[in-house]
Structures are given as structure tokens and as C-alpha cells.
Simulated scan of single mutants.
Amino acid sequence: MLTGLYVPLITPFDASGDIAVGALTRLAHDVLDGGAAGLVALGTTGEPSALTPAERATVLKTLTATGAPLIVGANDAATLAGLDATAALTLVPPFVRPGEDGVVAHLSALAQASPVPLVVYHVPYRTAQPLTVEALHRIAAIPNVIGVKLAAGGIDADTVALLADPPEDFAVLGGDDAYISPLLAMGAHGGILASAHIDTGSYADLIAAWQSGDTARARPLGHRLARLSAALFAEPNPTVVKGVLHAQGRIPTPHVRLPLLPAAAASVDAALSRTLTDSRA
């Protein structure tokens, strides 16, 4: 079962707009050294829809070379076909709103065709497709589906019901960074967290603290990291994260690609201030 912290890596760009491969490699090793259990390539945080096929191949080759457990964003049979990774992160079909039966049928077909296990990405505020706890249990029963990135936008009744009666051998990974501590307290197995580019060790410690039952450590740490995550998501992801990484000298530019725009200086400064304030706490 997948457990622990997985970091969905940004795609850093250099001054000419090309992928900064060296910076991507350094980021990958930074988060792994900080306690991440693995990496996510070509997730939403990596801006995959703004990359060319050649650039997506470069990202995948670079992160595969780390030798770390790797989850790769892949949402169709053609992309899944040649994948060599720990798992694929596969989105509940967005926009078309096929209903729960359609979602289950779609994911069943992809899982049957995929050479690697699927982690289903459930993010209804982006896909417009809600899922009940009953549907999540049906998805968990699909062969070759091993987990869910759960990003319901908070702690709703279906999240509570799922974690109260979790499917056997099925990883529930929190995907709403600001809510990761209560999700872990309820029994989530880990998280896929863009915020963990910044202060990776603390996010890894938070997961370990809840898993070991060290509530005295977990509660205040969770409160601190929720404030940091809120600051890092003050503008569309990953704009503030990139701004902070650039300010820290870890990537050559804060550049994003359209339709994203760079984060405002005030948002970056607020997130940087939060990292400095909390590091002294």
C-alpha cells in the first residue's frame, strides 16, 4: 500500500522558457532527502497541459532517473500504455459529468488496460463530478486500482464515511494541503502535497506523527502547516510555490505558462513570511 508523503513536482523553467532540467533534478533530490516517500510527475502542479510531448518526456525521464517511487499523471489508455512507474494518477473524468456509473465504468476500462496500478484523483471542485462513499467503495474494488488522491475541498460526509470504513488494501492519500492534518487524524495513509516543496521535512514529520499516534506533536505541527499551505495556495497552484522557490534560489525563474499568470509579489512575500515566522516558532 502507498503510504507517506508524495510531492507533485513543479516544472521549473529557465530564463528562455525551457525546462530547467538541473533544477528539476535538484528539487527531486531535495524533497526525497527531506523525507518524501516518492514523487509525482506530470500532476496538475507540473503544468502538463502547457508542456509539449517532448517536454513531458523530458520531465518523466528526469524524475525516473532518481530511482524513487514515482506516480505519473496519466488519464487515457494511450498515455498509460507505455508507462513504467509505481502507479498512475488518473483523474475522475472532468467536465462531462458522466455520473457515478459512468465514472466506475471508465476507470474499470482504464485499469484493465493499464500496465501499472491506478491512483484515482477525486477532486470534484475541478471535475464537477461528485462521488458518494458508495461510489468510492466501488472504485476501490476495481482490480488494479490501489488508492485515491482525495481532494473534496474539505471534510465532507462522504470523506468521513470513507475513512470510518476504509476499503482493505486501498490507500487514501490526502490531496487538499490545508486539510491534510485532520485527514491524517481520521486515518488517511499519507498525502500528495504540493506545499511540501517548502519545508518537506515538516510535512513528512506530520504524517509520521499521526501514524505513530503522537498527537502532542501532530496537532500543533498540523496547525502550523495549514497556515503555510493556505499561503501557498492563495493564488492558483503552483504560482505561489514557484515564487517562493525562486525567492529561495532553488529554481532559476518563477515562470509559469498560460493560462496561469505569475503570483503577485504580495502573495509570495506573505508565503515567505509564513515560512520564516513558523521556522522561529
Results as ranks from 00 to 15, higher is better:
residue 80 L to F: 11
residue 239 T to D: 00
residue 76 D to G: 07
residue 134 E to L: 11
residue 220 P to I: 14
residue 183 L to K: 06
residue 169 D to T: 12
residue 52 T to D: 10
residue 169 D to H: 15
residue 249 G to Q: 14
residue 105 A to D: 15
residue 15 A to W: 06
residue 4 G to L: 08
residue 235 E to K: 02
residue 160 V to S: 09
residue 226 A to G: 04
residue 59 V to D: 04
residue 202 S to P: 02
residue 63 L to F: 06
residue 239 T to K: 00
residue 123 V to R: 12
residue 86 T to A: 13
residue 270 A to M: 08
residue 238 P to H: 04
residue 57 A to I: 01
residue 137 H to R: 15
residue 90 T to D: 02
residue 145 V to W: 02
residue 100 E to I: 04
residue 232 L to Q: 08
residue 81 A to M: 04
residue 138 R to G: 13
residue 145 V to E: 10
residue 182 P to S: 13
residue 85 A to D: 00
residue 151 A to K: 01
residue 251 I to V: 15
residue 4 G to H: 11
residue 24 L to Q: 08
residue 180 I to H: 02
residue 211 Q to L: 10
residue 32 L to A: 10
residue 109 A to G: 12
residue 43 G to Q: 03
residue 37 A to W: 05
residue 198 I to W: 03
residue 235 E to A: 06
residue 97 R to E: 09
residue 100 E to D: 09
residue 261 L to M: 14
residue 135 A to D: 05
residue 191 G to I: 00
residue 94 P to F: 06
residue 224 R to P: 01
residue 82 G to F: 05
residue 248 Q to G: 12
residue 245 L to C: 04
residue 251 I to M: 09
residue 237 N to R: 10
residue 67 G to Q: 11
residue 170 F to G: 01
residue 206 L to C: 02
residue 98 P to A: 07
residue 72 V to S: 03
residue 88 A to V: 09
residue 244 V to Q: 10
residue 15 A to F: 09
residue 82 G to K: 05
residue 13 F to S: 01
residue 125 Y to K: 14
residue 28 A to Y: 00
residue 190 G to A: 12
residue 21 V to T: 14
residue 84 D to F: 00
residue 1 M to A: 12
residue 102 G to S: 01
residue 133 V to K: 00
residue 120 V to W: 03
residue 147 G to E: 02
residue 112 Q to V: 04
residue 164 A to I: 08
residue 259 P to E: 13
residue 82 G to S: 09
residue 19 I to L: 13
residue 190 G to L: 04
residue 268 V to M: 07
residue 248 Q to L: 15
residue 274 R to D: 10
residue 176 D to V: 05
residue 81 A to G: 05
residue 99 G to F: 08
residue 227 R to E: 15
residue 131 L to T: 03
residue 68 A to F: 08
residue 278 D to L: 14
residue 82 G to V: 11
residue 243 G to R: 00
residue 54 A to Y: 03
residue 25 T to N: 10
residue 40 V to I: 13
residue 209 A to V: 02
residue 43 G to N: 01
residue 173 L to Y: 03
residue 143 P to S: 09
residue 257 R to C: 05
residue 11 T to E: 08
residue 221 L to E: 07
residue 183 L to W: 03
residue 129 Q to S: 13
residue 252 P to R: 00
residue 48 P to C: 09
residue 144 N to C: 13
residue 172 V to H: 02
residue 116 V to L: 11
residue 59 V to A: 06
residue 132 T to K: 11
residue 6 Y to N: 07
residue 64 T to V: 04
residue 32 L to P: 11
residue 172 V to K: 03
residue 181 S to F: 06
residue 20 A to G: 12
residue 168 E to Q: 15
residue 229 S to P: 03
residue 89 L to M: 14
residue 255 H to F: 15
residue 162 L to E: 06
residue 19 I to M: 11
residue 76 D to S: 11
residue 173 L to M: 14
residue 218 A to N: 10
residue 170 F to V: 07
residue 149 K to S: 11
residue 113 A to Q: 15
residue 150 L to Q: 12
residue 3 T to Y: 02
residue 274 R to F: 02
residue 249 G to S: 13
